[in-house]
Design a protein around this nucleic acid. Sequence first.
DNA 1: GATGAATGAGAATTCATTCAT
DNA 2: GATGAATGAATTCTCATTCAT
Lengths: 204, 204, 204, 204
Amino acid sequence: MPTKKKPQVTGAAPARRRELLRTAAEVFAEQGYNATTVRTIADQAGMLAGSLYYHFDSKESMLEEILHTFLDELWDGYDAVLEAGLGPRGTLQALVTESFKEIDRHRAAVAIYQKESRQLAAQERFAFLAESQSKFEKAWLTTLERGVADRVFRDDLDVRLTYRFVRDTVWVAASWYRPGGQHSPEEIARQYLSMVLDGIAVRE
Amino acid sequence: MPTKKKPQVTGAAPARRRELLRTAAEVFAEQGYNATTVRTIADQAGMLAGSLYYHFDSKESMLEEILHTFLDELWDGYDAVLEAGLGPRGTLQALVTESFKEIDRHRAAVAIYQKESRQLAAQERFAFLAESQSKFEKAWLTTLERGVADRVFRDDLDVRLTYRFVRDTVWVAASWYRPGGQHSPEEIARQYLSMVLDGIAVRE
Amino acid sequence: MPTKKKPQVTGAAPARRRELLRTAAEVFAEQGYNATTVRTIADQAGMLAGSLYYHFDSKESMLEEILHTFLDELWDGYDAVLEAGLGPRGTLQALVTESFKEIDRHRAAVAIYQKESRQLAAQERFAFLAESQSKFEKAWLTTLERGVADRVFRDDLDVRLTYRFVRDTVWVAASWYRPGGQHSPEEIARQYLSMVLDGIAVRE
Amino acid sequence: MPTKKKPQVTGAAPARRRELLRTAAEVFAEQGYNATTVRTIADQAGMLAGSLYYHFDSKESMLEEILHTFLDELWDGYDAVLEAGLGPRGTLQALVTESFKEIDRHRAAVAIYQKESRQLAAQERFAFLAESQSKFEKAWLTTLERGVADRVFRDDLDVRLTYRFVRDTVWVAASWYRPGGQHSPEEIARQYLSMVLDGIAVRE
DNA sequence: GATGAATGAGAATTCATTCAT
DNA sequence: GATGAATGAATTCTCATTCAT
């Protein structure tokens, strides 16, 4: 993350910054990035629109930092899972669980990611989104394929299609999940895994 | 659909209208409604921005008509399924299949719906989105609950959560589905249903 | 000059464009480019600030077009002089005379050039200013050096310094010259040449 | 120079002030007054923008002080010349020489003066610029006219035009002069005077 | 003397929309 | 049906300036 003239990411007193980013993320998630005006963010933060520019270069750089921070943390979790050598089924379970935990902690960022990443990824500045996306895809496909090879997962399903369904369902949950609601992330993960692994039909 | 001063919906030359709406839908889907300028649509249609206003009241009315048309057709299909008395499992299968078919025919509209409906639904003008949404929810919940009661679907899953997962996965497919690609809508539906009904894990 | 989406330089109906550019040039010359707001230009042109953007991409592109147009015309004149084979003294006279004529026709553009070109030349977009500058320098230096070689100009003067003095004096005239004032450009050129060639001191 | 609330001009630590003004002058000269932000000056001085306001009332007051200081010193020199009773030719030579010396010492201030004085002079605060200008004009015109009367200068040249040419050429040198370059101010003055007095053409 | 965080008044620019032709 | 030219409101961003600490 670049530092130019403004204090950006200086490490010193990132408290206000982080607070402002939380506010911005909330608004972006709710109204969409384009539909959000900096004035709305500033209002929400109790300051004037221009004042935001003391802390950030631009509206876009806020977005970038929100997504970057989120993906950094996400991959900390994913990498730990992937290096744990859990076997295909265990890995899948851990990835899903980890994902719902991230949704719990970064609901707004996930919602933004979900809605905007396709368009953003085309911009150089947001190339990291595309990178993350393909790393993500590789991790999932590998896991699914190993599972099929190990006869843990069915081999009559199209792995790529399955990947897409799983990927989307997990993340789209950010659009309805409310932290502190009736279901904990772990509970949601359990239910989701049960559905995806064993299906919703009763076995005879 | 309202008529004000302009010939709108006059029945005369609805061909051009429909063509323009298709163009608009494509652009809305690709760039997002807010990020789309009427000029982009007009460029795509080979005319000047101002000229669109001969055909439509506003950018918003284009959006409305796109979504309305789509939902009308969607419910034609759904209603037929729901009235066919297929039983819970059959209904679920038919609803999913119908959905993928709609994605095939109205990919752009579905993508727009997916991305914008939450925000739009708050506006009076787009109240029909909320209506459709709740009708949709009722249909699905009823189907799932009847399935549980009939011991066709597992009763250890939270019906509401299951509904959300199924709902989202189906529609989110619009974001990656390309008509004329390798998978037909029927094939995608079959794969999806297989996963959701029986799970991806191998049964012992 | 690039054409993207806007009618720019389309050749069709350049009347309004040219008029607007004249207005803009006048204001830029009077207040300085940075100190000029697009609103001022628009006011002067009897329209709203935003309306200017129907005709031009940006304030900067107005500036660019003003300077480019001016330099194009200027070099038409200079090239004709340089190719006429007039000999050093004749060439110098013709260049000076041509310059004052250009000041007469493009007073505003010359004033802008004079004041802003140094800063602008650093920007890629205004690289043509630097090019013109060095072409200009080459033409003058060559003329002066040939004059010295031919014993038409004194050889005890530093050619480079002389060039600078001559160059600046000519152009700086744009800051006080008023078209239609008491002195015609030809008269000014004659006086200036008399001073530079023969000096202001009385010969004994 | 006014004192309001801040210690300004207190005599205490005028060193820092002078240093800051030198820095500001440098930046103003390079980027233009309007295009210069107080932050750039502060950066250059190793402090934050707000801190400048401990030393100065405003950006404008920095500019005023820079120009005032320069003109005060300039007139010290000019007045000495004008009172020395050197005769028209000697006076002209001394004025030019003095001017190039001032450019050597106050390059930045001269460059600023050259670029901004016309606009500034309109403001009440900068009325001293106009005063200086007219005093300057009077001194030159008187000298030239006396020279013509004494048959030291040619009488077939328009005195006013000659004045303008001389005035501009001298000052515009600030735009290319670099202190410590190959030519000393005295050398430049000599060359310039030789050109203006005797012309660049070879005498037969 | 200096910092950090803000203010507030513009600035350029965008864009949906209008309307005479 | 369409064009060309404009409107006007909103938007992002800039920057001189203030002030408590």
